[in-house]
Design a protein around this nucleic acid. Structure first.
Lengths: 368, 368
DNA sequence: CTGAAAGCGCTTACAG
DNA sequence: CTGAAAGCGCTTACAG
């Protein structure tokens, strides 16, 4: 195992190369990072000696300390990392982040907020990054304190803004209002809502509306508000006539469970309003396995417009939100802050309803 | 902008805290990282003073240099990062990597191999990581040299193994052989192949079989071999009777284009063998838009078993491969190498054919 | 349980 | 274009 033994002996350093060539460490350093500060010939000599000596260039950790920056941005996820990757919206979001960091030649460090199923700021404390992008964090999450304590800038995504910490997101309330209105406009009056988690650590199940304002995930709170506003416009009292099922995780399986519970209620719902496409797609699967037809028996409207929304059958009617752009702008803003430049302000990012096949008018005949 | 001005003044360091309390820097350091080395009372004093002074804990960059390790692992992608995120298999792979790094309390740095559309080892050179996971790299990729030059261990994924660099993957040849045999067994004799890119920088289009052994992506080469072997068993001469379309990127759109070209050939193919599900799903969309029925007119078999494979209509028959496990084992092996422990050897990871609805017997009546 | 001190491997302002 | 030297902010073996 040559690789192992190699690691036992002392590593070759920049200083070794300088000594070998009988020049200063500055000259070697310049050969790597400031070609304009060195003669072509000397640079060639340095690079050749380095190669011969097995020196692969300046140690990144030493460079980081010396320069006072790591040339990497961190993305903090409230949950565990594996969970983050199982969400299609997150992949799109990271795609946007990556396109900005890559253009700026910055690294991208993924930072889990949850370690061994427990909220743990350790990864935040020890992340060698020049700034943090904070993905979908509840306003009362203790991680937020850990992030703000670090002397580097941060940008919030889907969580509004904080004092000194800009935010990127959509107008969740307006978008949710539009999604709900789409169903109500078609005549639905018995609509059930499948909601994302209101706050850290809450269990799945039927929830009461009173808890709306207590939702600490800003986007969830805003969407509930948007839904409620639409229902009010159609003179439906949410608390009395709109059942709400809260899901502890965003997965199709949770959507299935939620749909089963909601459609067990009588009189039977004619429509499901889901706060994410994953939940909506799960609900669709459950509805069909119950022998009901979409949209003839039950309409479904989602939120997100993930790629799967247009591949499921029937195709899902949903609210598009610009996941990629969200990531892109969050990164752009953070990059500006890191560089001490004026950050761009994209404002609230645009959304729109994508009408496909999963929602139609309610059945005229009332179900049993 | 208090955050900005804060960054203009000198940051509070561990030394400041020590001086303020009149104790050694060692004591402050221990208070953070070795609670057993400090009295409870002193530790409390340190943490309180730190809070009052706005010290948020040891600087990660300094710690990294001093400790000689960054406590982060890098995942190198041959292409640009945004592209990596658009591939569902990659998300699953990263999910596996993340579950291992998180358990080991290591960071996860994403390292692009392509910068501004050009292969660029810069990100590899400057990544402050303790080791590299190299995702799906061609054997002649110059990045490989850059990675091996770094004095840290590496693990290859889907690219076999190199001297001193272990690899993780599946038996691509056997898996591809099984996928092709499934079609041939059902009676298909006019099969077209939609292949992934053979080597860095090659264009999309009909390819010749002679180029098989020149494929520098090991998994692609092995799969081609597996297909070829199956065809040989049914006395089909690949070079003469099996058209092969090579795609430069792995996307549903490339699959569409490929299917259009392949199904334009006469006599018309009765089956498509795609080297990835993304390509297969694109092909399916194109086939249907041509007014052909799957599987009655044309059968399709994919490779990967991504989540979308079971949500498309008809559901896709495909080769399952354990993307999550691949990531997990790659990380586990690398973690062992970083710690100078004996790495685990998972062997070739298991695959299996998932028979769903996109492939059936060929139409008995011969198409025009 | 605590302290004094060396040094991790660079980069860079400064002087020439 | 090149060199001498300081110092980035820690951790840790060692001594007490």
């Amino acid at each position: 195992m040559s690789r192992r033994t190699k690691r036992l002996s002392r590593r070759v350093t920049l200083k070794d190369v300088a000594e070998y060539l009988g020049i200063s460490t500055a000259a070697v350093s310049y050969a790597y990072t400031r070609p304009d500060r060195t003669s072509v010939e000397l640079r060639k000599r340095v690079l050749e000696a380095a190669k011969r000596m097995g020196y692969s260039g300046p140690n990144p950790m030493a460079r980081n300390l010396r320069r006072g920056r790591s040339s990497a941005l961190g993305v903090v996820f409230p949950d565990s990392l594996p969970y983050a990757f199982s969400d299609p919206s997150t992949a799109l979001f990271l795609e946007g982040v990556a396109s900005a960091t890559e253009a700026a030649e910055l690294g991208l460090l993924l930072v889990p907020g949850t370690l061994r199923k427990i909220r743990n700021p350790k990864a935040v404390h020890s992340a060698a990054v020049d700034g943090f992008i904070v993905y979908s964090m509840a306003s009362d999450d203790p991680l937020l304190d850990a992030i703000r304590a670090r002397p580097v800038p941060a940008v919030l995504v889907d969580s509004g803004a904080l004092e000194g910490v800009p935010g990127v997101g959509i107008d969740d309330e307006a978008a949710a209002h539009e999604a709900a209105s789409h169903l109500l406009r078609m005549g639905h009056r018995r609509v059930g809502v499948i909601g994302l988690n209101f706050k850290v650590g809450v269990r799945s199940g039927i929830a009461r509306l009173e808890s709306l304002e207590s939702a600490t995930y800003r986007d969830v709170r805003s969407r509930l508000r948007g839904y409620a506003k639409a229902f009010r416009e159609y003179e439906l009292k949410w608390d009395e006539s709109v059942p709400l099922y809260q899901c502890s995780t965003n997965s199709d399986n949770e959507g299935r469970v939620a749909a089963r519970v909601l459609l067990g209620l009588r009189p039977r719902l004619t429509a499901i309003l889901a706060m994410s496409d994953l939940l909506a797609i799960g609900a669709m699967a459950e509805i069909e396995s119950m022998g009901l037809h979409i949209p003839n028996d039950v309409s479904v409207v989602g939120f997100d417009d993930i790629p799967a929304a247009s591949t499921v059958n029937p195709q899902l009617t949903t609210m598009y939100q610009p996941h990629v752009d969200k990531g892109f702008w969050a990164a752009r803003i953070l990059i500006a802050l890191v560089r001490d430049e004026e950050p761009p302000d994209p404002g609230l990012l645009p959304t729109h309803l994508v009408v496909r096949d999963s929602a139609g008018p309610p059945p005229s005949a009332v179900a049993p």
